[in-house]
Computed example of a mutant assay.
Amino acid sequence: MDESVVVSPDWLAARLEEPGVRIVDVRDPWEYEGIGHVPGAVSVPFDSYRDESDVDRGTLPGAKAFAELLSGVGIAPEDAIVAYDDTHGVFAARFVLTALEYGHDDVRLLDGDYSAWNRTYETTTDEPDLEPTAYEADPLSREESPLVGLVAVEDALERGALFVDTREDHEFEEAHLPGAVRFDWREVVDDETRRLKAEDELEDVLGEYGITPDREIVLYCNTARRISHTYVVLRALGYDDVAFYEGSLTEWLANDGEIETGPA
């Protein structure tokens, strides 16, 4: 696994005291405050970096809002951020995707979640002292960004790209993009350890669905949350040609895009 994308609990534990490493807890505030958190972590709840009021932007919060959010918790553009949740990383992965889109160079997903961390390492209810920064976002250009829109998706369908639907069976059966394969995002997680499966296991699981590094891959779900996790995992495995359909099926259906129904 590429440690510039996904890091282990051991990696993080060895760097808790490093000033340039900032830890972001995206759980609900009551979990952060009442259950405990990784020492030094700041609270950035999932709802604070998700905005469903602007259809053209998907659910991204906007560069200005995101910059203000990070400024408020004392994060600077040069910091290395490690994000986690307690849901196998799916909400934290959305934070990773958002930070990358707004130009943060070093943002990583904790392999596992709060429960996985808590099995080995100490937690705390102490909140760190925060000194606000003057964070400025630097959004990726259209050429740099993995996010694609409706027209690009239509073109990818014409090219025969592999569309990967990360939703549940019943959702897929109701409607999916033409030719899509269904890949439940949770298949990459080991239920016992709550961490990602070993790299060779991941490659085998993905390969069973034809999700291989030589393919052009387009990810989608309903509102681009679940594909965030799959995107981060593929990126950590070295997949280069992975597009992220931010509008996902919500936008596709709103524009009367062609669909198929039935089981995978």
Rank of each mutant, 00 (worst) to 15 (best):
M1K: 13
D2T: 06
E3R: 13
V5N: 04
V6Q: 08
V6Y: 07
P9N: 08
L12Q: 04
P19N: 05
R22A: 03
V24Q: 05
V26E: 01
P29Q: 04
W30V: 12
W30H: 10
Y32C: 01
I35C: 09
G36K: 05
H37Q: 07
V38I: 10
V38S: 02
P39N: 00
V42M: 00
V44C: 02
F46Y: 09
F46R: 08
D47V: 03
S48D: 08
Y49M: 03
R50L: 09
E52W: 08
D56C: 14
T59I: 12
F66M: 04
E68G: 15
S71Q: 02
S71K: 01
A76W: 11
A76K: 11
P77H: 05
E78S: 09
T87W: 09
G89H: 13
V90W: 03
V90P: 07
A92S: 12
V96G: 13
V96C: 14
L97P: 12
L97R: 13
L97V: 15
A99M: 10
L100W: 12
G103M: 15
D111W: 05
A116P: 05
N118H: 15
N118G: 11
T123S: 14
T123G: 11
T124M: 10
T124L: 11
T125K: 12
P132N: 07
A134W: 11
A134V: 15
Y135K: 13
A137Y: 09
A137W: 10
P139H: 15
L140T: 06
R142C: 10
E143A: 13
E144A: 11
P146D: 08
P146T: 00
L147V: 12
V151H: 14
V153Q: 06
E154Q: 11
E154C: 05
D155I: 04
D155W: 13
E158K: 13
R159Q: 07
R159N: 06
A161W: 00
L162V: 00
D165K: 00
T166C: 05
E168I: 02
D169I: 03
H170Y: 03
F172G: 01
E173G: 14
E173S: 13
A180K: 10
A180L: 05
R182T: 07
D184L: 15
W185P: 07
V188C: 08
D191L: 15
L196K: 01
L196S: 02
D200F: 10
L202F: 14
E203V: 14
L206E: 09
Y209C: 10
G210N: 04
P213R: 04
C221G: 08
C221R: 02
A224W: 04
H229R: 04
T230F: 03
T230Y: 01
L234K: 01
A236Q: 03
L237F: 08
G238E: 00
Y239P: 02
V242L: 08
V242Q: 08
A243G: 07
F244G: 02
F244Y: 09
G247H: 02
S248I: 00
N255K: 15
N255S: 14
G257R: 08
G257M: 09
P263Y: 09
A264G: 12
A264V: 13
